[in-house]
Every structure is written in C-alpha cells, then in structure tokens.
Design a protein around this nucleic acid. Structure first.
Lengths: 199, 199
DNA sequence: GTCTATAGGTGGATAGAC
DNA sequence: GTCTATCCACCTATAGAC
C-alpha cells in the first residue's frame, strides 16, 4: 500500500513540475528530462505514468483550464448583476496576471505548440463565453446594461478585456510598468466600456 | 545582377517560410533546417542571409510591421480627425483580414517564444502606438472625443480592436461566419466604443 | 552564395537489470 | 516502479570546397 501511494504521488509530482517548468520557461525550455530532474526521478520513470510527452502536456493543460474556471466562478459570489459583472472582469484580470502562461496557452495561440490539444480548447472557450453571456443577460434584465443582443455585447466585452490582457502579456503595454499600475488602467478602461454600454 | 536578385529573393523566401512554419506548427516544429528545406536551399545557406535563428525571426517581425505601417498610414488621407480615426480602425481591420499570418506573428505571441525578439518588436509597436495617440489627440482637440489622457484612451482603443481581431483569428469568434459578417460586427462594436468615449 | 560534411549537443523513447 | 545505459533522430552552427 505504501508503494502504491508513492506511485500516485510521483505522478502528481510530475504533473506539477511539468506545469511549473512550462510556466517558467515556456515551450522553449521544456523537456521531459528536465521535468524528471526536478521531480527527482530518472527520465525513464516518466513513462511509467504517461504514455508520451504529449500525454503529460494534455494533462497539464487541462489543469490550466481548471484554474481559469476556478477564478471565473468566484464572480458568482457577488450579490447583484452589476457586481457580478465587475467581479468577472476582475477575476479575468487576476487569472491573467497570476497565471500569465496559462492565459497565453488558452487564449493566445500557444495551444498550437501542442498540436493535438485544440479540441478541448474550443469546447472550454465556448463554455466560458456562455458564462459571460449569462452575466450580460442578467445585467440587461436589471437595466444595468442597455437591451441589445447579449451575444454581441458579450463578445464586445470579452474582446475588450482580452485585448487589454493580451497586449499586456505580449509586452506591447510595457509602458504601464507594474502589474498594479496596469490593473488600475484595466479597471478604468473596463468601467468606461461598461458605462458606454449602459446608456 | 541576376545572381544578386536571386539572392534577395532567397532571403525573402526564407522570411516567408519561417513565418508560415512557425504559424503552422508553433514553436514545437520550428527549425532552421525545415525552413531551409521548404525554401529549397540547404540549412547552411540560411547563414548567408541571417546571423542566427533569432536574427531571422527578428527580420520576419520587422517585415510584418512594415506592411502593417503601410496600411495604417493610408488613414492619413482622410480629411477630418473623426474620419482619420475611423479610417485607422478600418485599416487595422483590413491589415488583419488581408494579412492574417503577419498579424498573428506580430501581435499574437511569437515575441515570447523567441526570447531576444522583444527589443525591435517593442520599438515598432511603440511607434504604432504613438501614431494612434496622435489621432486620439486631434480628435480631442476638435471635440470628437472627450478630453482625457490621450495615452489611456489610445490604449483602450487599441486593446479593443486587437481584442476583436485576435479572438477572430484564433477561432474563438467562429460564430461570425464570413469576413464580411465579422467586419460588420467589428465596425458596429468600434463605433459604439468611440461614441462611448465622446461624451 | 550555395553546397557537403561535420562538430557538438539535446531530447524522446526503449531495453533490461533490480 | 525505478534505475542505468543506450539508440537514434534532430538541432544550431561552423569549415571549407566550388
């Protein structure tokens, strides 16, 4: 039994180390050998737990989506539609700032680094979008946003926050300095957009 | 002279193949050997034109920005600040639709994969940004936009159009069907943002 | 300017002992 | 289940002939 638990722990450890290695150095510095090194096992041991490098990476990526969802769901804790919408924007930012490589993987085309990963991505992003449409819809019902097609408005909002975040993560907004400075700009710009959609 | 022209063409060919190889297979499948193979020359020949793998990728980036600039500059032909701003948005869209691969390479993540690419890239995007700030400024002077910090407003606008375009190009807006359908949505969403910034 | 050949290296995956 | 040892494919970059 002790042996069995140790095996499971090694597998989890490999997942964690693989994720961190990817998050630290991107695809460029990623290798199974280095993952094994960090996990304190030989390279060959990895193949007792995963069929291939891709199988391991698929596992890591699923974890990225899981984290993203956990951020977004916190927005439901707010009490009014308006607050839930604001919380969505805030959680979206937090996820991106605290997990930039996960963000990039999911929304900025890094998925192409791991060829066979695309399908899950499409499914997951559709459900994320649906979540946002629901928030928009309840804002319209309580007149926080002007009535319009919820899908179009949701797409506008998503594009807005994604645009801010992705330009930031790819270094084009380097002028905003610290994460806190950028966060202030993000909040101001987003509030402005929402008030523009309210009239 | 014939020889000289052929050399130039080989260089351009290498640039194109490098860009497409990266966009097709991501960082994973990228190698100078494969670029050379596709261009129909030996791997060693690449080093006659570029100092290193990174130098090649920098060049690809610069070429993309050159095309991008040519689109944006056409917006100056419009006669009023308001029309120039609208033309900016339109040319931005046109560049993305007509050169999606260049757009993706420049603005959607190649920078992080090729570590030392940032410097040149940053410079180019800064001058683009400056161009937009000027358009915003003249709109504020003629009261087409409300007075505010031009940099912040320009960043908001850029993030907005980039968000729309990049989500479109990465397939997350597949629901909008044809390019024309997307263009209509893009124009409506952008007009809405600008009117929100006008009050 | 392009080639072939090669140096020098990394990494995925497997074989077989323990 | 983990190890060591190994195979093999592929990579960047350089040297030197043509």
């Amino acid at each position: 039994m002790g042996a069995r638990r140790e095996g499971t722990e090694t597998k989890a450890r490999l997942r964690t180390e693989a994720r961190d290695l990817y998050l630290d150095g991107g695809f460029a510095g990623f290798s199974l050998r280095e993952v094994a090194r960090r996990a304190g096992v030989s390279a060959a041991a990895v193949y007792r737990h995963f069929d291939s490098k891709e199988a391991l990476m698929r596992d890591v990526c699923a974890a990225g989506f899981h984290i993203f969802s956990s951020y977004l769901l916190r927005a439901l804790a707010a009490r009014t539609p308006r607050e839930r919408m604001a919380a969505c924007a805030e959680q979206y930012l937090r996820f991106a700032v605290e997990n930039p490589r996960d963000y990039r993987f999911i929304f900025m085309g890094a998925a192409e680094d791991f060829a066979t990963l695309a399908p899950a991505d499409t499914t997951e992003s559709a459900s994320t979008f649906h979540f946002l449409v629901d928030r928009v819809r309840e804002c319209m019902q309580s007149r926080v946003l002007a009535k319009a097609d919820p899908y179009t408005v949701a797409a506008t909002i998503w594009a807005h926050v994604h645009g801010l975040v992705s330009l930031r993560l790819s270094g084009h907004f380097a002028g905003y300095g610290s994460d806190e400075e950028f966060a202030r700009f993000y909040r101001a710009a987003t509030a402005q957009l929402l008030s523009g959609l309210a009239e």
